[in-house]
Computed example of a mutant assay.
Amino acid sequence: MTTPERVARSYIAASNRNDQQAMVDLFHDDAEWIPISPIEPRRGKPAIAERYLNEVKAMNAPIIEDVYVADSQRCVVEFVVAHPERGHVPIVDVFDVDHEGRITRLAVYRR
């Protein structure tokens, strides 16, 4: 398993535990987070933490049917969110990970 895949799996596992602090801890200090529009992108771990801990936590839903494709620098995860109001929502996360195993960029897309 590549480092990016290990990091992505840790992130998904933390999300399923509703542990946003563990998710934030995976980011590099100067990381970029690009969520689904209309949510504005964030740069830097403090800005990402603020968003995750104050807003993402409240709308967290279980991730199911996750599939990982990775190389030495990036992992793409296709998954479904089992949202209580919207049903099954297909998502793709693209994790860029540095040599220390920190997320430098996370882009989120609807499938």
Rank of each mutant, 00 (worst) to 15 (best):
M1E: 14
T3N: 06
P4S: 03
E5L: 12
R6G: 05
R6C: 10
V7F: 02
V7M: 04
V7S: 02
A8E: 01
R9G: 08
S10F: 01
Y11F: 15
I12T: 09
I12D: 08
I12V: 15
A14F: 08
A14C: 05
N16P: 07
N18Y: 00
N18M: 05
N18G: 08
D19F: 01
D19S: 06
Q20P: 07
Q21I: 08
M23C: 14
M23N: 01
D25N: 10
L26S: 03
H28L: 11
D30M: 08
D30Q: 13
D30H: 11
E32M: 14
P35L: 10
P35D: 08
I36F: 03
S37K: 14
S37C: 12
P38M: 11
I39Y: 06
E40G: 06
E40F: 11
E40Q: 10
P41S: 12
R42F: 10
R43W: 07
G44S: 05
K45E: 03
P46S: 05
A47E: 13
A47T: 04
I48E: 02
I48K: 00
A49C: 04
A49N: 01
E50C: 03
E50Y: 14
E50F: 14
R51A: 11
R51T: 10
Y52F: 15
N54C: 13
E55A: 15
E55F: 15
V56M: 12
K57V: 15
A58G: 12
I63W: 13
I63N: 05
I63L: 11
I64D: 09
I64H: 05
I64P: 12
I64E: 13
E65Y: 02
V67L: 12
Y68N: 00
Y68R: 02
Y68T: 05
Y68V: 07
A70H: 04
A70G: 02
A70P: 00
S72C: 12
R74H: 07
V76I: 15
E78Y: 07
F79R: 02
V80M: 08
V80R: 00
V80S: 02
V81Y: 03
A82H: 08
A82I: 04
H83F: 14
H83W: 11
P84Q: 06
E85W: 12
R86Y: 14
H88I: 11
V89F: 06
V89Y: 03
P90G: 03
P90Q: 00
I91R: 01
V92F: 05
V94Q: 09
V94H: 09
V94S: 10
F95G: 03
D96P: 00
V97W: 00
D98C: 06
E100P: 01
G101T: 13
G101N: 07
R102D: 08
R102A: 14
I103P: 09
T104H: 04
T104W: 06
V108Y: 01
V108E: 10
Y109M: 09
Y109P: 06
R110Q: 13
R111C: 14
R111T: 12
